[in-house]
Design a protein around this nucleic acid. Sequence first.
DNA 1: TTGCACAATGGCAACGTTAACATTTGGTCG
DNA 2: CGACCAAATGTTAACGTTGCCATTGTGCAA
Lengths: 334, 334
Amino acid sequence: MAAVKKSVSVKDVARLAGVSEQTVSRTVHDSPSVRPETKERVRAAMRELGYRPNFAGRSLRRGKFKTVGVAMFNITGTGNLDRMEGFAAAADKHGYAITLTKVDGHPYTLEGASSRMSALPVDGMVVIMNRMPADFGTFEPLPGMQTVLVTMLEHPLCSTVDNDQFDCSRQVVEYLLGQGHKTVHFISCPERSLSGMQREEGWRETLRAHGVEPPRLVRGDWTAQSGYAAGQALADDPTCTAIYASNDAMAYGCIRGLESRGKRVPQDVSVVGVDDSLGDIVPDRRLTTVRFDNKRVGMWAVDKIAGAEGVASGVEHMLIPGMLVEGDTVRDVR
Amino acid sequence: MAAVKKSVSVKDVARLAGVSEQTVSRTVHDSPSVRPETKERVRAAMRELGYRPNFAGRSLRRGKFKTVGVAMFNITGTGNLDRMEGFAAAADKHGYAITLTKVDGHPYTLEGASSRMSALPVDGMVVIMNRMPADFGTFEPLPGMQTVLVTMLEHPLCSTVDNDQFDCSRQVVEYLLGQGHKTVHFISCPERSLSGMQREEGWRETLRAHGVEPPRLVRGDWTAQSGYAAGQALADDPTCTAIYASNDAMAYGCIRGLESRGKRVPQDVSVVGVDDSLGDIVPDRRLTTVRFDNKRVGMWAVDKIAGAEGVASGVEHMLIPGMLVEGDTVRDVR
DNA sequence: TTGCACAATGGCAACGTTAACATTTGGTCG
DNA sequence: CGACCAAATGTTAACGTTGCCATTGTGCAA
């Protein structure tokens, strides 16, 4: 009658079924070398006792955890949900689980994330690198801990994967130039954002590659309010017929700011954003923007670890291009 | 010279430091009964060999994993990021880790999520219950697996926690009635959403409690587009001076829909949303809305499990109220 | 009848850690 | 000087699982 507190082990099952522990283990793994009727007896015993294999015993024996750790410096970031969706999907596919850890700390190092992870039951780790860690250049992954960084930067010892921010800007700028615009103005973001700076660099270099000297950029802070201010400022610039904002919120803010100064989008000015995050939110506009496949980024990272299965697969650098989505905020001026 | 593949155990450290394994273990846990100079010798050996304690051995010995599992039916959902932030923060506080699992399956059961989790190294689990599982009423948590459900519904055997959707609607409706509006129109959401239906019920019952027969609702689908259509439809209704939309996107869509029909917000019609999700996205409006503390929901869930520490603490039901945030989309008509 | 192959099962050890108990050492007090 | 105490360290066993090898049983060919 007393509640059974102790957990049930193979030993208990073996005793009840009248077989050896080994036979129980073999039944759990559905080995063909156990007679069907024996299996059934063992299974009945497992059901009766409520047996569930113990993860610790198993991992200790096997030396594998079938788990990938994910270290994030800040959890609330654009695209993180989609990335997690990707982590979870890929993990699922390989029979792995995902362990999440928030890493904070000043300074903010890969070494810190790594040592934190190493105390957890994981076979490898993914670091979402929103900001630049202090030790990026010198970091060495722990032996036996396959490490994938989510960043556009390359690393000599760790595989990396991310959206191709540079190519994103190239697509946008070339698209706008292709529509006949003479130049493309840019609304940037805070300088601490890695991906934002890469977008900025892509914008600048693509313009130069087409023989256009980049105009002075307007610095924003990711919010629509800053985009609004930028739009108002650019409304007075007669050379400004096309604006590229580093995210959709600023792009939308910019449109409203232009409108508040009597400019119409796209008749007078074309505007493009990035992230495709406003589809369900803005009812009366279809913003031209770039859609990233963050889920695919997440899957790639986990595939790299869970798919390797101990085989020391080489370091790879993967960039996943975004897709330009045409809305109604760009006008062909040719 | 040959790369050392095998992992380093206490035994190796003990041998190198010339002490017993127990002394190594004591050093790892910084026990006061080891002489400082011995500790230093051991630490040096650990560094030299790159020793890291093995999670599996430890958990096997201790019978605890110091990990909480989180089961989600769909990862991409409003507020999930904030909830995860809460999970991670609370886990951190208790020295726990978070293990994430996506549960899919038709039908969609707590039993399925639970048995999936039971094969992972977790001491307890949290289920984010976006939809209604088939076995909600009959589900029994596995013995030794403390289970917390994120839902507004109560459960006899599992603790539950969620935002108080009912109270959210009460706040909004009473606020609008308090501003002198005779009734409050409602833009609802798809019927499969649990929280959405609770908002709807709260709207209906609060109106009735104030002696107002709820007007016919307009069904939306969470998108701004559906809100836009609803706004256009309601613009022709002369009794409609106040609209409550079950999320911000629809509220914003509604505002634009009203405007497209010549109605001004808030001069002609007041509009309130839910979620406080548009702050950085809409530049020229401050939507009156309700802000939920999803991080706190997440923290409560993990606290319940990690804080219990084996003590069988009772089943609790926690509802966390949202906070009405006043913007510029409501007019006092008294 | 013997020998042999093969199917089914059992026994044992080891994975890495640490709680509980045992032992040694050095020092203090009666 | 011996008895006793505390500090520091060592020994043993156990947590649950499973790979390896040994053992038993069964049928069949020589």
